[in-house]
Computed example of a mutant assay.
Amino acid sequence: MITIEAIAPASHEDAIIRLAKQNNARDHWISSSSDKQIGIKILIEKSRSQKLLDQLQALMEGKSNFRVLAYPLEIALPYDKSSGNNTSTQSREALLSELKTQGKLDGHYLMLVFLSTIVAAIGLIENNVAVIIGAMVIAPLLGPNLALSLSTTLGQVKGIVNAARTLVIGVAFALVLSVLLAFIYPNITLTPELMSRTHVGMEALALALASGAAAALSITTGVSSVLVGVMVAVALLPPTVTLGICLGIGALPQAEGAALLLLANIASVNLTAQVTMRIKGIKPREVEKQRTALTIFIVGTLFWCGLIGLLIYRLSV
């Protein structure tokens, strides 16, 4: 469950309480009250929260003295067994807030890319699996991919551009760092860990497709503990680092394979992530925006399917 607080003109008290009852809220109470403003807190299940948030947004349109706040609920007594295993979809507002942070291009993001690239490069060059897994867990490139999928599902062109820019700059930054490391690191040989990321097989596509769906499910249901496993499985950074190292030492055939693997991972993750989000019912509130979002979603799906099709064709020849 979550707590939604509506701070509104006092004249809207009855309307807000009526909406809470219509959405079968577990409880509601007045948290503050004056002649002009009133605060009403509503305790409601996650699965019902999106509809209530949409209705409150419609109620507050055109009003400057209206605000809606949502709080995560960690403990409620007495304990309600009927909602103890609830893994319903988070509201689009919560997803946008979380993924906007993960997909933001700033110094924090670039520092994570820098650190994870160094860790991954050392692990790949030294053939150390444990070190490579450490770089996977940092996984700075996963956030922009999920942000890109969410923006595509919601039809937000600006969000798509921002997430794609963050992803491209992150990949380019990791690639440049990897090439520089290949120049300065002594006696680099193509270790088994490097070689394993220089070819694309059907099993790699299947893994990336499954990982994208798992990433979307974990982020939409709020089960953050799953994300670590997803980050390790997707492993978008090691193929990028492998590509840079191969380019740096002049191993061009292996570099081509690493590039194809990276494209396969990005395409597969975005395809299944945005399809999973759509299946989970994530869409804009306004009807006219829903039509635009559907069009952008279809275009995005066809784009990723086409890219994966080209990769499969490339593998078959």
Rank of each mutant, 00 (worst) to 15 (best):
E5V: 15
S32N: 13
K63N: 06
K46A: 10
Y71Q: 04
E5M: 14
Q57C: 05
M60D: 11
V68R: 00
K51S: 07
I7H: 08
H28T: 08
I38H: 02
F66E: 03
E5K: 10
A6F: 13
I16Q: 01
A58M: 12
L69S: 00
K36D: 14
S32V: 09
G62N: 11
Q22W: 01
A10M: 05
I44Q: 00
D35R: 10
N65I: 03
D35C: 02
L59K: 02
Y71S: 09
S32C: 06
I75Y: 10
W29S: 09
S34G: 12
I42E: 08
I17L: 03
L43H: 10
S64V: 10
D54Y: 12
L56W: 03
A58I: 08
S34H: 09
A25K: 02
K63Q: 11
Q55W: 12
H12P: 01
K21L: 15
E5R: 13
L73F: 00
S33F: 14
L56A: 05
A8P: 01
A20G: 10
I7D: 01
L77A: 11
D35P: 00
A15M: 08
L19W: 04
L52W: 03
W29F: 13
F66T: 07
A8V: 15
N23V: 04
I44C: 04
L69N: 04
D27C: 04
A6I: 12
Q57H: 14
D27L: 05
S47I: 10
V68W: 01
H28A: 08
I40H: 04
A76R: 08
Q22R: 09
R48S: 13
P78K: 05
S49H: 07
L56G: 01
K63M: 10
D27E: 14
K36R: 15
D14H: 07
S32E: 11
S49C: 11
H28Y: 15
L73H: 07
I40G: 02
K51C: 02
K36F: 14
L59F: 07
K63E: 13
K63Y: 06
N65F: 06
Q37F: 12
K36T: 15
P78S: 04
R26V: 06
K63S: 11
